[in-house]
């Protein structure tokens, strides 16, 4: 039907066409307003997407994106037989799924606790402290952490004082990933609670009153009222987190904290792409291919998480 009306012949379409042009003319100031925004998306989002085709080419800067010859998936074949690629992919998945399992519940637990605080002033105090690190860049946080965790740092001073062995969390591969999780919780946990607290604020207070009259205890109220009230928010955020798996391994954090000593566990696809391109002078086409692989896996994960949520009777995100 739609196809018919579209291809309905040039003679018939002239009148709707003129009407459309008229409406567009009337909206001319709106187009002017939206122009900078669209220019941004076209230039900085869509041109790079077009640039992705160099993943399928032997890219040569002098010949440009169009002029460079196609190379029959050479980059992808090379990538899939490169042991280092599989190793880095494994690290990415371990860290990303680790974050989903370990980091994801923290904001929920803290939001539930903060919800139990009756005094608005205390609640605000806790939130103020917990949220602050979110607004610091990972460079700043890496400075803070290096000072706290290095060999002579406060953590080791305390450990020694208490009679424990010193730890080297920043350089020891066996504890590095755990350190990544812990420090990211330190930085982002408070920010994460905000959305849940907002969802809780939307719960009808009469539900709690009714439950009290029925003799429900605190834990029961938490389980039967608060939790159902935030469940859909939890699901949406979980889908988004799964959809961000490959990116969510946390480039900013790892890039500012890692060192060659922990590459074996901390090197993820993004850091790999960066070093390959800018330190080892690897082919731009090859590293773009690795990036494209990452984006595709990400998209697939997002759609499957969404589908799964819908199967389970939740609303999903689209």
């Amino acid at each position: 039907m739609a196809m018919n009306s579209l291809s309905g012949g040039t003679t018939v379409s002239t009148r709707p066409m003129r009407k459309l042009l008229e409406r567009m003319w009337q909206a001319r100031y709106l187009y002017l307003l939206v122009l900078p925004l669209l220019a941004y998306y076209v230039i900085f989002q869509y041109l790079p997407m077009y640039g992705v085709i160099i993943a399928f080419k032997s890219y040569n800067f002098a010949k440009g994106i169009i002029g460079s010859p196609w190379n029959d998936f050479e980059h992808f074949r090379y990538m899939f037989q490169l042991p280092q690629f599989w190793h880095v992919l494994k690290n990415t998945l371990v860290i990303a799924f680790g974050r989903l399992i370990i980091e994801f519940p923290f904001p929920i637990v803290f939001a539930l606790l903060l919800h139990e605080i009756r005094s608005a002033r205390w609640k605000r105090f806790y939130q103020t402290v917990f949220t602050f690190p979110h607004f610091l860049s990972w460079i700043i946080v890496s400075g803070i952490l290096s000072n706290f965790l290095y060999d002579m740092g406060m953590l080791n001073q305390i450990l020694q004082y208490l009679g424990f062995q010193k730890v080297s969390l920043l350089t020891d591969p066996s504890s590095f990933v755990g350190m990544l999780f812990t420090t990211n919780i330190w930085k982002e946990m408070g920010w994460g609670t905000i959305i849940y607290l907002a969802a809780m604020a939307g719960i009808d207070p009469t539900l709690y009153e009714a439950a009290s009259i029925d003799g429900a205890g605190r834990l029961q109220k938490m389980r039967m009222i608060t939790w159902p009230g935030i469940k859909s928010t939890v699901v949406v955020l979980f889908i988004l987190a799964v959809g961000n798996t490959m990116g969510g391994a946390g480039f900013d954090q790892i890039f500012n904290l890692y060192n060659p000593g922990v590459y074996s566990v901390a090197d993820i696809l993004d850091t790999f792409i960066y070093r390959l391109t800018f330190y080892e002078g690897s082919d731009f086409g090859f590293t773009t291919a690795v990036g494209l692989f990452k984006s595709i896996v990400n998209c697939l994960l997002l759609f499957s998480a969404n589908l799964l949520a819908k199967r389970m009777g939740e609303r999903g995100i689209f």
Partner: peptide, 26 residues
């Protein structure tokens, strides 16, 4: 007119992007 097309374009950019190297070349 065209508002929905713009919105879809913006939404797609949230799902997919060119990545580090194509942006660098740009």
């Amino acid at each position: 007119p065209g508002r929905n097309i713009f919105l879809v374009l913006i939404l797609i950019s949230m799902l997919f992007n060119g990545g580090m190297i194509p942006t660098y070349l740009l």
